[in-house]
Design a protein around this nucleic acid. Sequence first.
DNA 1: AAGTGGTCTAGACCACTTC
DNA 2: AAGTGGTCTAGACCACTTC
Lengths: 240, 240
Amino acid sequence: MLKYEMVARDIQSKISRGEYRPNEQLPVMSDLCETYGVSKITIKKAMDMLVSRGLIIKRRGSGSFVKNIAVEEINPPLQDMSRQLAGFTGEYLDTGVEVSTIVHEFSVIQATPKVAGRLRVRPEDFVYYICRTRCADGVPQEIEYTYMPISVVPGLSYEDVQGSIYGYIERTLGLKVYSAHRSIRAVMPTAEELTRLKVGRDVPLLEIDQVVYLEDGRLFEYSICRHVGDRFTFFSISTN
Amino acid sequence: MLKYEMVARDIQSKISRGEYRPNEQLPVMSDLCETYGVSKITIKKAMDMLVSRGLIIKRRGSGSFVKNIAVEEINPPLQDMSRQLAGFTGEYLDTGVEVSTIVHEFSVIQATPKVAGRLRVRPEDFVYYICRTRCADGVPQEIEYTYMPISVVPGLSYEDVQGSIYGYIERTLGLKVYSAHRSIRAVMPTAEELTRLKVGRDVPLLEIDQVVYLEDGRLFEYSICRHVGDRFTFFSISTN
DNA sequence: AAGTGGTCTAGACCACTTC
DNA sequence: AAGTGGTCTAGACCACTTC
């Protein structure tokens, strides 16, 4: 266990136990160095983690303070960022929810100009096109329109597409998903989506348009994912 | 100018000029130390900034790589995170767009249980309730339902509410907005919103539910903001 | 003037990947 | 074995806030 992780974890547990209370000033860094027997830069790194988790605030010249947050928001931290890249299957891991998939289309096509632009391949290059409805306990949650260059994700089979594509990429190909660039909008379902998602025509969808990168910097996915409005929430913490 | 900022800026400009190309490996840290005449930890901090901006990827044991991104995405970086806390007025600063506001309601009420819970005040405490439609060049963009404890934001006047509340908080009260915790969903407009936002009943809205914190850790705002669907996009970059 | 957190260094040691 | 980035230290110096 890394030192800064241990310190961050300990301070976080003190906040959640009420030992450090909302709006209270935390001990100064030099005191924390003594308490934990670590250097200043290690304390700083631990505090920076707590800032990015939305738990504390730092002010140069004045000190660090616990945010006025509810205990429920502390543990686990406000959003489970670690699952934002896990994919649909990963999202429901260990939740006891049964995930199922309806494959509407799985084909290899030549990239349209728009898809080629987003995937950064040439317009004539071959890409997989996959359209799937993802369900939780049998209830449709989202519909995905996914494009992947066959050169980056070779050997994808119908069985993989019925299950977890990320599972295939990580376990079979040995690649690691690294980051996603997303934009989010509200949209209405198309006629086709109405039946596939089993929603009324007055139900809005949250559309996430994203490109996803591997650990080696290569772009392997462009996808548009449309979530049923009343069944999905996206979390975000911004800090100055 | 801080050293790590200078280094980050220089590497970023080399990426945008094509000197470092997509998927190319960057010089190793020890070389960058020599090139810029700074220590390893300063290089690391600069590279970490580029990772969080979505431009590069780091792999322990193998090196750092430029992501396969389009030049247009590089400069300015993928989303202007710095404006995510600027408020509606700040968002349009220096864009030449004329921002206007329609105040539907501005009152002091006793916090309902829900609002008290979100604002972390007692249910009987007084809070401002402000409902406004915000327009850009006369076109309605969003409707805001805002709650603020009068104890944290004293002296708010009708004039402030017609303009920028954040301007009042920062310039008159001398407080600084620090961070926001948000959740995002897709919703349909109410009958009232149809007329206020001048949209059809088939236009979805992007709802952002947020609490906002000051630099001293105090919670000063709970707001629900509903953006017209085809006129708003929210950006996000996730990294493992 | 005193106290806060932020930047930066030189260098030791470590975890991981590649060969 | 060699090369990569990551963690950590002790300490200098700095920017900013508070009194």
